[in-house]
Design a protein around this nucleic acid. Structure first.
Lengths: 149, 149
DNA sequence: TATTGTTATACTCTATAACTATA
DNA sequence: TATAGTTATAGAGTATAACAATA
């Protein structure tokens, strides 16, 4: 059997499997979030990115998070209302809005880290160490699949 | 350092990383779907499940797909209108609606398998064989995380 | 009473289009 | 002209609540 064809079919099969599992886990994550956590997954994702990367332009943040600028405008507006981020004009380019975490925002990220993944952490604890090791290797690969190009 | 604490922190970190990457890949998958494919990801997922499992009750299908019954009602209604599934009453329990693929539905699943994951397959082809092997191991684990409990 | 499925309704997230201000 | 961001609007996907039919 031709190797190329075999690889191609295998990739398509893997793609299908990965796509379905990713979709289902995402849906589960949405439904399993702790009710008293009022921050949506995408909001927390943006907050976490600001925590990791520091001050970012709004469009830059949108590109990293793979959403369109209007979506990020809304997210940032909400975060600012909650006092979790501040917006300030760029020093020299007055078109740009630079977004950064407030102390409260940083606290929320830190405090939330323990609790926000409680469900998934519990599920992970049920796996074997080997299985977790696989997922630890897989996570950055999945991230790379999502980014790029 | 206590092993338990170390493991717990590691699980939380892994949970966070996995959650974010899964979210981003899902968003990317939604945006990268071929425009001429009129079937949504969740619709294709339901169709694929019927392909694999055969005739299923509507609520059963909803449970497998991790959506609420009303959502599946809508999905199945649309699929029936498109002639991709048929609904028939259960032989003995007349409350139940059994859903199964039509020949056309089966054709769509088969024909779509090659093209629907084109983008992801291409991305996977850029990985090394070792990285794909990791994802091949990870996919069923992610599925297990999404299911269960 | 419990379960299966539907209808009605609303919410969340996201996108596109059109616009303003600045470069 | 091109880019950063906003506003207005719409669409997809999902949920909850209330209901009907059946077990």
């Amino acid at each position: 059997m031709p190797t190329l064809e075999k690889v191609a079919r295998t990739n398509a099969g893997l793609a299908a499997e990965l796509r379905v599992s990713v979709m289902r886990l995402r849906r589960r994550l949405v439904s399993e979030r702790h009710p008293n956590n009022e921050l949506s997954l995408s909001t927390m994702s943006a907050l976490g990115m600001l925590y990791r990367r520091g001050e970012l332009g709004l469009t830059e943040l949108a590109q990293i998070e793979r959403v369109q600028p209007p979506s990020m405008t809304r997210t940032v507006k909400w975060l600012a209302q909650e006092g979790l981020v501040t917006r300030r004009p760029h020093d020299t380019d007055r078109r740009q809005i630079l977004v950064s975490l407030t102390d409260k925002g940083r606290d929320v990220v830190r405090a939330d880290r323990a609790s926000r993944d409680a469900w998934l952490s519990r599920r992970l604890a049920d796996l074997t160490a080997e299985e977790r090791a696989v997922l630890r290797q897989a996570a950055p690969l999945i991230e790379r699949l999502a980014q790029g190009d």
